[in-house]
Deep mutational scan, measured.
Amino acid sequence: RIEKCYFCSGPIYPGHGMMFVRNDCKVFRFCKSKCHKNFKKKRNPRKVRWTKAFRKAAGKELTV
């Protein structure tokens, strides 16, 4: 099963990425440490230029 990165919305293939479980049992999956570090710094994915959330908000990503 291919999961989605919580921060950048990129695909996470089986055996890859990192799973972060908070004390309230909420699960966050990250494709790379870059995404996990930005999440820990409480960065907003919509303001980080390389994420899909930014591209969609800025009108750069074509949605079908």
Rank of each mutant, 00 (worst) to 15 (best):
N44F: 01
V48P: 08
M18D: 12
V48M: 07
R43D: 15
G15P: 06
K34P: 01
T63G: 12
K26M: 08
G15C: 01
M19T: 12
K26W: 01
K41G: 06
V64L: 08
K41D: 14
V48L: 07
T63N: 10
R49T: 15
R46N: 14
N23D: 13
F54M: 11
K42R: 05
K37E: 15
F30G: 01
K41Q: 05
W50P: 10
K56R: 04
F20T: 12
A57Q: 08
K60C: 14
F54T: 14
C25L: 08
H16L: 08
P14D: 08
M18Q: 11
C31E: 00
R43T: 15
A53G: 09
W50A: 09
N38F: 02
R1W: 07
R29V: 08
A58R: 04
R43M: 14
K26F: 04
T51D: 15
R22A: 13
A57M: 06
P45V: 04
P14T: 04
K56M: 06
K41V: 06
F28G: 03
A58T: 07
D24S: 00
R46T: 14
R43S: 15
N44S: 08
K47Y: 10
K56V: 13
H16M: 11
F39G: 02
E61A: 02
F54S: 14
R46D: 15
V64P: 12
R46K: 13
K32A: 12
F7N: 13
F54V: 12
H36W: 03
T63E: 14
R55E: 15
H16D: 09
C31A: 00
A57I: 07
R22F: 11
C25W: 06
R46I: 13
R49N: 14
S33G: 05
A57R: 02
F39R: 00
F30Q: 03
L62Q: 14
K60L: 13
T51S: 09
K40T: 13
V21Q: 07
C25N: 13
C31R: 00
R1D: 12
F39M: 02
P45K: 06
F7K: 01
I2M: 12
K56F: 10
I2P: 08
F7H: 10
K56N: 14
K34Q: 14
H36I: 07
C25T: 11
W50I: 05
F39P: 00
R1I: 13
R55I: 10
K40V: 10
K52Y: 11
T51N: 07
F20Y: 06
K26S: 12
C35A: 00
T63H: 09
I12T: 09
F39K: 02
V21C: 02
K42I: 06
F30R: 00
R1L: 14
G59K: 04
C35K: 00
Y6G: 11
S33H: 02
G59A: 10
G17A: 07
V48H: 11
E61T: 01
N38L: 05
K34F: 04
H36E: 15
V64M: 13
T63M: 12
K42S: 12
F20R: 01
C35S: 00
P14Y: 02
C35E: 00
F7G: 13
K37R: 04
K37G: 05
E61V: 06
H36F: 06
K40F: 12
H36R: 02
F28M: 12
K40M: 13
Y13R: 06
F28P: 01
K60H: 09
A53F: 03
G17Q: 08
F20A: 07
Y13A: 11
F39C: 02
E61F: 03
K37P: 01
F30M: 04
Y6K: 01
V21M: 05
Y13T: 13
V64R: 05
T63I: 03
H36Q: 12
C31G: 00
S33C: 01
R43H: 14
M19R: 04
K42G: 10
N44Q: 07
N38C: 00
E61I: 05
M19V: 10
V48C: 08
K34M: 06
G15L: 02
V21N: 02
W50L: 12
F28H: 00
P45S: 08
L62K: 13
Y6A: 13
N23A: 09
T51P: 09
D24M: 00
K56P: 15
A53H: 05
F54H: 11
C35M: 00
A57K: 03
F28I: 07
H36C: 09
V21H: 00
V48Y: 15
E61R: 00
K42A: 12
T51V: 08
V21D: 03
R43A: 13
R29T: 08
K26E: 15
F20H: 02
N38I: 01
L62E: 15
K26I: 03
N44H: 03
H16W: 04
V27S: 04
H16G: 10
N44V: 05
P45T: 11
K42Q: 12
W50C: 09
V27W: 01
V64C: 08
R49L: 13
G59R: 05
F54W: 05
P14Q: 04
N38S: 08
K47Q: 14
D24P: 01
F39L: 02
R43C: 13
F20C: 03
V21G: 03
K40P: 01
V27F: 02
E61H: 00
K37V: 10
K40C: 11
V27I: 07
P14S: 04
N38P: 01
K37H: 08
V21Y: 06
A57V: 08
A57P: 09
K41P: 01
K52Q: 14
C35L: 00
H36V: 09
G59L: 08
L62H: 07
R46A: 13
C31I: 00
W50M: 09
N23V: 08
Y13C: 06
V27K: 02
E61Q: 02
N23M: 05
K47P: 14
D24K: 01
F7A: 10
T51I: 04
A57L: 05
G15N: 09
M18V: 09
R55C: 14
C35D: 01
K37L: 07
T51E: 14
K40G: 06
N23R: 04
K56C: 15
G10V: 04
F7D: 12
R22W: 07
P45M: 06
K34C: 01
P45A: 08
I2W: 05
T63P: 15
R22C: 00
F20I: 11
F7I: 12
K60M: 14
R22V: 10
R43V: 11
R49G: 14
I12F: 01
V48R: 03
R49P: 13
F7E: 15
K60F: 13
C35T: 00
K37I: 09
K40N: 08
R46W: 10
N23F: 01
F28V: 11
P14C: 01
K32F: 00
K41Y: 03
N44K: 05
Y6F: 08
T51F: 03
H36S: 06
F30T: 01
A57S: 08
K40Q: 12
W50G: 11
K34W: 03
L62F: 07
N38V: 01
K41S: 06
R1E: 15
F39S: 04
K41I: 02
G15F: 01
M18F: 11
V27R: 01
F28D: 06
W50K: 05
T51L: 05
T63V: 08
G15M: 02
G15D: 10
K26Y: 04
P45W: 04
G17F: 04
R29W: 12
F39H: 06
K42H: 01
K47L: 09
Y6T: 11
H16N: 13
K47A: 10
K26R: 07
K32I: 00
G59W: 06
A58S: 10
P45E: 13
A57H: 13
N23L: 06
N38Y: 04
W50V: 06
K26T: 11
M19W: 04
K37T: 11
K32V: 02
F30P: 00
V27G: 02
K47C: 09
H16A: 11
H16Y: 09
I2F: 07
R1M: 13
R49V: 14
K52N: 12
F39A: 05
K32M: 06
G59M: 07
T63L: 07
K32Q: 13
